[in-house]
């Protein structure tokens, strides 16, 4: 820890020319309001499997899936020959405050799925749900099992009352209806909550470590891309947020088979398609136990859980994830 040398390094870095972000080529193939469906341009010989739709969380931006060339889950999947689609939920504003989870599932997600199936003349596709997007994927798959060929969940909470789940403990006594009111929920406020999970590491240590590391240009760019993503947090559509916190975090309805969306029971036992559950052993946001509970809740006889010695974000962008996660997904899909 020698600040003086770090500062001189920073000054030298400041004089260098900007570098471009390395993201995979893609195009918008469908759009509905703020929702965009992207299809990524293939970069390898196509694998013999159905298209893969990535359903990301509502609480963060999906470009974390394709942050830069050497830290991109999507690029890894493309290298495996998969035909990759991604939903961008956009930034909800005041006009979206009454958008419900049913709207997200029945209109937005269903719209994307139908578009892909129509374009490929298929009856079903592969779905990869990430974090909160995994919860949406589970709900959609349980409600529309005929549309899903294989389901992959990644750092996805299912049992929201596992002992290590700090967010859930905090959420249980909060009056969510009063918090939301008739408005949206600020992404900045949610960020404060996420930082509060590990305040010393997330608000101090990482910056001190960066100074101490005397970063070169590549390291500085890597850091800033992640920093940009962490604090690029969309506001949350109020009604959907209220439902999500109440039904999942507070009442744990999904794990208890008590969840209803628009009057339809979301019964995970109806899920009989092959399921791959990807878990980060060091995930501080979604404890492994919260994800591992899926095994006992689904009706599928073809269930695989893979645990990686990684944290929540490390599952997408760590060097180790680049080697292990896309290959695991591709291998699993190829066998089905």
């Amino acid at each position: 820890m020698t600040p003086a040398s770090s500062f001189s390094a920073l000054a030298a870095l400041a004089a260098a020319t900007p570098g471009a972000a390395g993201c995979s080529e893609r195009e918008v193939v469908w759009q509905s309001g703020k929702i965009k469906l992207f299809r990524y341009r293939p970069i390898a010989r196509p694998a013999a499997s159905a298209p893969l739709l990535i359903v990301y969380a509502l609480v963060n931006r999906p470009y974390m899936m394709d942050l830069q060339e050497d830290r991109s889950l999507i690029r890894g999947l493309l290298n495996e020959g998969l035909d990759v689609y991604l939903i961008d939920w956009g930034y909800p504003d005041g006009a979206d405050r009454f958008t419900t989870l049913a709207d997200y599932l029945d209109d937005h997600l269903a719209g994307c799925v139908e578009q892909i199936l129509k374009a490929h003349h298929l009856d079903d596709l592969n779905m990869l749900g990430v974090c909160q997007g995994g919860v949406l994927s589970l709900c959609f798959s349980a409600l529309h099992p005929q549309r899903i060929k294989n389901l992959i969940t990644m750092v996805t909470p299912v049992d929201f009352h596992s002992p290590a789940d700090l967010l859930s403990k905090w959420a249980r006594k909060i009056d969510v209806a009063a918090w939301v009111g008739d408005g949206n929920v600020s992404g900045d406020v949610l960020n404060q909550l996420f930082l509060s999970l590990m305040p010393f590491r997330l608000t101090q240590q990482k910056y001190v470590d960066l100074l101490a590391a005397n970063p070169d240009r590549a390291a500085a760019e890597n850091f800033m891309r992640v920093e940009q993503w962490i604090f690029d947090s969309p506001d949350q559509a109020g009604a959907a947020f209220r439902e999500f916190v109440t039904w999942f975090y507070q009442e744990n309805r999904l794990a208890q088979n008590r969840l209803e969306i628009s009057g339809r029971n979301v019964d995970l036992r109806a899920l009989r398609v092959p399921i791959l559950n990807l878990i980060g052993k060091r995930d501080h946001l979604v404890p492994p136990a919260a994800s591992l509970a899926l095994r006992e809740l689904v009706g599928s006889s073809d269930y695989t859980a893979l645990e990686f010695d990684l944290g929540h974000i490390g599952m997408y962008i760590s060097a180790r994830a680049q080697h292990e996660v896309p290959a695991s997904i591709a291998k699993w899909l190829a066998a089905r």
Partner: peptide
Amino acid sequence: QPDPWAEWQAFSA
């Protein structure tokens, strides 16, 4: 797309 390098320059400068 955000330009991390430009942001890095902005605050270090």
